[in-house]
Amino acid sequence: MSLQLYGQRFYTGKKTSIARIAILIFVFALLQTAVLGRVSIIGIKPELLLILACYFLLHLPDREALISVFILGLINDAYSLVPFGLTSLSFLIIAAILLKARDELIETNLLTWCAVLCGATLFNAMLQIVSMRLVLWEPLPILNSLGKHLLVVVINVALGVALLPILIRMSSGPAASHKKVGEDQSEHLKMRKFV
């Protein structure tokens, strides 16, 4: 996979078909719940659904991104013992931040992708710890959880980088994946000036 792919702007404003989004969600959810549970490292496994949520938030138009992220959160909750809706809420708060940041990110590179994954993983962990502590009074060991999540960050970033070319190809189709860097930036810049 060429570096050009990594230099490509994530958000092109181009719509991705619902079918492609649904397939991606379905495959990632199956991988997370049926396969990754068996291959956890010291009880830690990558958060595929969070990686996909971050990708959708950077790549898809607003409506598709938000609804997809909401669904991903609900799937995560269905296969978890945290209150149903909590992860979805956490994902949506991350969405609010990322969508705002996306407007400022004209060109997303590999470093930005890593930073987004890193921030989203830590933010999600913090939100979950705080909500479980304050709302549910669950005695989640904070230091242990945060220490563990530093490792989750590393795993998520590594997997996210490895999956990026596949995600771009699968969600955009062959034509979009060959798009050159900055091809439709002028339109985006016009939009920004307009705003």
Partner: peptide, 14 residues
């Protein structure tokens, strides 16, 4: 067993 937890918070099976 048809499924396992999706997150790093719970240890569960379905």
């Amino acid at each position: 067993v048809i499924g396992r937890e999706a997150d790093n918070w719970s240890r569960m099976i379905l």
